[in-house]
Computed example of a mutant assay.
Amino acid sequence: MNNPLLQLKSASVCFQSRTVLETIDLTLNRGEIVTLIGPNGAGKTTLVRVVLGLLTPDTGQRTLKSGITIGYMPQKLHVEPSMPLSVRRFLALAGANRKNISAALAKTGVPHVSESPLQTLSGGEMQRVLLARALLRKPDLLVLDEPVQGVDVNGQKELYHLIGQLRDETGCGVLMVSHDLHLVMASTDRVICLNSHVCCSGHPQQVSRHPAYLKLFGGESEELAVYSHHHDHQHAACGEVIPESSTDTPTTEHSRTQTHAGFSA
């Protein structure tokens, strides 16, 4: 695209004598989900701070499309147990009115928590509230730092699906940081594998086979191995298999076979 939402060109950041980010190039377009992955200490949080404009790179350039709005969802939020703060009041701190708050909570699937104290929310509810807060800005670019932090596997799948829906509905670009490799690889358009520099980037299937990716996440000890699996059935919440149809062999039209990239121990 000729007019991306965000561009980083040869961005480098040093803390004292240590290079945290080295000549990073990043382009993010409207309607695109880009996921940033990498080991601990790879510079993912520093890169997010550069993207948000909270940190100026020592060298290189950050360029935003004129007039765009960024919505940010942090990894987690610490709330003092004694603080009497409801979800609605928390979201109102962002300058939103009651109508917009209700709409944002409905969009993220948690309208029922509006008057609940923040401290009483489950992990999944809290992440959806934080996502609602980011949406209140009506962002052109959503920056999501570990959006499924503290959420169980089923909740993670639902959140990633919701993020995809929001992208489809609004046309916003999404930059997402994640450690949940087995799920996120099926939920993104492009992956950037970071370890101070960009080790590899591209479509999830390409990245999952790249030697740099395998070295970082597969490991020479082969404790983890990348695999792809296909399934032609679904599971109920209790774990029971739900047949796709009454026939032994589902047709192409009715089959819901999917491919995911993941890991085996």
Results as ranks from 00 to 15, higher is better:
residue 1 M to T: 07
residue 4 P to F: 01
residue 9 K to D: 05
residue 9 K to Y: 00
residue 10 S to C: 06
residue 10 S to V: 02
residue 12 S to N: 13
residue 12 S to W: 15
residue 15 F to W: 06
residue 16 Q to G: 07
residue 17 S to G: 05
residue 19 T to A: 14
residue 19 T to D: 11
residue 21 L to N: 07
residue 21 L to C: 11
residue 24 I to M: 00
residue 28 L to K: 01
residue 30 R to M: 05
residue 31 G to Y: 08
residue 33 I to C: 14
residue 35 T to K: 05
residue 35 T to N: 03
residue 36 L to Q: 05
residue 44 K to C: 00
residue 45 T to P: 03
residue 45 T to I: 03
residue 48 V to S: 02
residue 51 V to L: 02
residue 51 V to N: 01
residue 59 T to A: 12
residue 60 G to Y: 07
residue 64 L to D: 05
residue 71 G to D: 15
residue 72 Y to E: 07
residue 73 M to I: 12
residue 75 Q to F: 06
residue 75 Q to L: 04
residue 76 K to Y: 09
residue 76 K to D: 12
residue 79 V to S: 01
residue 81 P to I: 02
residue 83 M to S: 03
residue 83 M to W: 08
residue 83 M to A: 03
residue 83 M to D: 01
residue 86 S to R: 14
residue 91 L to W: 09
residue 91 L to K: 09
residue 93 L to A: 11
residue 93 L to C: 11
residue 93 L to N: 13
residue 94 A to G: 13
residue 95 G to F: 13
residue 98 R to K: 10
residue 98 R to C: 05
residue 102 S to W: 04
residue 107 K to A: 13
residue 109 G to Q: 09
residue 110 V to C: 15
residue 115 E to G: 11
residue 118 L to C: 08
residue 119 Q to T: 14
residue 119 Q to P: 00
residue 125 E to W: 08
residue 125 E to M: 11
residue 126 M to R: 13
residue 130 L to V: 07
residue 132 A to W: 15
residue 135 L to S: 04
residue 135 L to G: 04
residue 141 L to S: 06
residue 149 Q to Y: 01
residue 152 D to L: 08
residue 160 Y to V: 04
residue 161 H to T: 11
residue 162 L to Y: 09
residue 164 G to N: 08
residue 165 Q to V: 05
residue 166 L to A: 07
residue 167 R to T: 07
residue 170 T to I: 05
residue 173 G to Y: 03
residue 175 L to V: 10
residue 177 V to M: 00
residue 179 H to K: 02
residue 184 V to R: 02
residue 184 V to A: 02
residue 185 M to P: 00
residue 186 A to C: 01
residue 187 S to R: 09
residue 187 S to M: 07
residue 189 D to N: 13
residue 192 I to F: 06
residue 193 C to Y: 03
residue 193 C to S: 05
residue 194 L to C: 06
residue 194 L to I: 01
residue 197 H to V: 04
residue 199 C to G: 04
residue 200 C to T: 07
residue 201 S to R: 10
residue 201 S to G: 09
residue 208 S to R: 06
residue 209 R to W: 06
residue 211 P to M: 06
residue 212 A to W: 02
residue 214 L to S: 08
residue 217 F to Y: 11
residue 219 G to F: 14
residue 219 G to E: 14
residue 221 S to W: 12
residue 227 Y to K: 08
residue 229 H to S: 08
residue 229 H to T: 04
residue 230 H to E: 07
residue 231 H to S: 15
residue 239 G to P: 15
residue 239 G to W: 12
residue 246 S to D: 14
residue 247 T to A: 11
residue 248 D to N: 12
residue 249 T to L: 12
residue 250 P to N: 15
residue 250 P to A: 14
residue 251 T to C: 12
residue 254 H to L: 12
residue 258 Q to G: 00
residue 260 H to G: 00
residue 262 G to V: 02
residue 262 G to D: 01
residue 264 S to L: 15
residue 265 A to W: 10
